[in-house]
């Protein structure tokens, strides 16, 4: 019973899709201030700067944290307001791999997925689908 087996595999592969939650540890104002530049054009990391703008930005971070925003959300907020230059540039040694938009695996999976959808549609339109 090949269609039967195919069907079971399909169901299993759908159910077992690997989705693992990433848990965030407790974050502090300093953690975030260390990743942002001060917006007063001083060119200093926020946690090191000593100006009024620094105070304002730290207050904003505190309030955001108070609302339970995550680190990424707060950083995104600042990026949305000031652009990427608000982020502290990564040091070369710890630079994460660059963004990869066209990934071979991704494209292959997309193609296989569409083909699989086609096969399923073809099988279900057959008259004796799953029958004996």
């Amino acid at each position: 019973m090949r269609p039967k087996r195919l069907f079971i595999i399909l169901i299993l592969s759908l159910v077992l899709l690997p989705v693992t939650p990433v848990l965030a540890a407790d974050i502090t104002v300093e953690d975030i201030a260390g990743q942002l530049m001060c917006s007063c054009d001083c060119g200093i990391v926020l946690s090191e700067c000593e100006c009024d703008t620094q105070e304002e930005m730290v207050t904003i971070i505190e309030q955001q944290l108070a609302q339970g925003e995550s680190q990424q959300e707060i950083l995104d907020y600042f990026v949305a307001q000031y652009g990427d230059q608000i982020l502290v540039p990564p040091t070369p040694a710890t630079t994460p791999p660059p963004k990869q938009d066209s990934n071979l695996v991704l494209w292959a999976l997309a193609l296989i997925g569409i083909l699989a959808v086609g096969v399923v549609i073809y099988l279900t339109q057959k008259k004796r689908v799953g029958g004996k």
């Binding site: 069907f7 079971i8 169901i11 339109q125 057959k126 008259k127 004796r128 689908v129 799953g130 029958g131």
Partner: peptide, 21 residues
């Protein structure tokens, strides 16, 4: 997802196609 698809599988005889392309 699992429950519904299993149910579809068990009822497959009632879901036979009446026509083919």
């Amino acid at each position: 997802l699992f429950g519904s698809l299993v149910l579809v599988f068990y009822r497959r005889n009632g879901l036979k196609s009446e026509a083919e392309m």
